[in-house]
Write a protein that binds this DNA or RNA. Structure first.
Lengths: 210, 210
DNA sequence: GTCTATATAATGATAGAC
DNA sequence: GTCTATCATTATATAGAC
């Protein structure tokens, strides 16, 4: 079957590209991707037109997979970072996590969209948590959620970037280590806070009232 | 004076490189640096041996300047992120902030060292704050400080990376915008916390006691 | 010290055979 | 659809004149 063969080659190249980009970053060469997919560099260009075209399809494919996986576990996910932790430990999804981390690192379209989706999701979960009395209400819900997601994902990204695994295939272990080290402090910070009192906070609450 | 002329050219190239790397990332070419310094590409190689050599000297120079500047304002700095905010608003230091952000983004040696220094500093400040009764004590001071620094710097980095200024010279404005948006949520989170109670936290406090 | 000219290597992309 | 061969560009780095 000619069409099936075609689709399978395309998919193989795309999957190889996702893995390569995850491991080496987006500076990875078309040649390396072709080698991983056991095809010629020319075939990559034939199917995707350009490296940018390949990148675009990888972005879309990864985002689609993540959206799909999120739908399967709706309600179970509280923060973007813990989603990535869960994903990283599933072999099948590990390359996706690497790809998304690279995308956040580089500032690409996929990274931005992923973060924005995470913020949107967290907004819903937080509202539910507040309604359930599990989370405290905030002076500015939108700003709080945004900072929580940005800081959680940013801490993970920075941790992985500054201290990457020797073998990039061990990304899952690195992600897990980060969570082992930070889940304690996070819980403590989120429950007790960090400061005792702060005059600036009073001002934040009652701007120019007193 | 031959020696003075030499040193001035070296310094000019190095400063140009810091600025270029800050704006374009470390993929910036030797040619671009040479053009910014108004010298030939050959002269850059003559002075620094290789692009890697140039990079090394930039790393050392930036770290030295930051160490120096930190010494000048000892005790005034609570977190790494607010240090960068202060720096970014001073025109003279703006390229340094860009350089450090790029270095954290790429995972280079300078980024790692900068973060580690920030963690070490924050450890001292936090201990003082706890002693003064301004900050709550923690179950694991080292882990808490590390997470606070990593999340603050990570949130800033991610924010700047995902939504960079149109003109890279407007980095200061972007950094300031991030702080305007997140200082409120940070203060609230740090003072009140986020969750009401959490069973997992009890376990964290008294592991296998009950 | 500084420049011009060039060597060398790698990359994205194209052309055409099969 | 797939490959081989090649082009054009771009990068670091070198050599040697001034």
């Amino acid at each position: 079957m000619r069409l099936v063969g075609d689709l399978r080659a395309r998919a193989r190249i795309r999957d190889a590209a996702v893995g390569r980009f995850a491991v080496d970053g987006f500076g990875a060469t078309v040649r390396a991707v072709a080698a991983d997919a056991s095809v010629s560099p020319g075939l990559v260009m034939h199917h995707f037109g350009s490296k940018a075209g390949l990148r675009r399809e990888c972005d879309e494919h990864v985002l689609a997979l993540i959206r799909e996986a999120k739908a399967d576990r709706i309600g179970q996910v509280a923060s973007g970072a813990s989603l990535l932790e869960t994903f990283a430990s599933v072999d099948e999804f590990a390359p996706l996590v690497g790809y998304i981390l690279r995308s956040m690192q580089e500032g690409g379209a996929a990274g931005r969209e992923f973060v924005e989706h995470m913020v949107a999701d967290a907004q819903v979960y937080t509202a539910e948590a507040v309604a359930a009395g599990v989370a405290r209400p905030s002076q500015d819900e939108a700003a709080r959620v945004r900072y929580l997601v940005l800081s959680s994902l940013g801490a993970l990204l920075l941790s992985v970037t500054l201290d990457p695994p020797d073998d990039p295939r061990d990304l899952a272990a690195t992600v897990r280590r980060f969570f082992d080290e930070s889940s304690g402090p996070m819980l403590e910070l989120f429950t007790d806070g960090f400061l005792t009192t702060d005059h600036m906070l009073d001002e934040y609450r009652q701007p120019r009232t007193t």
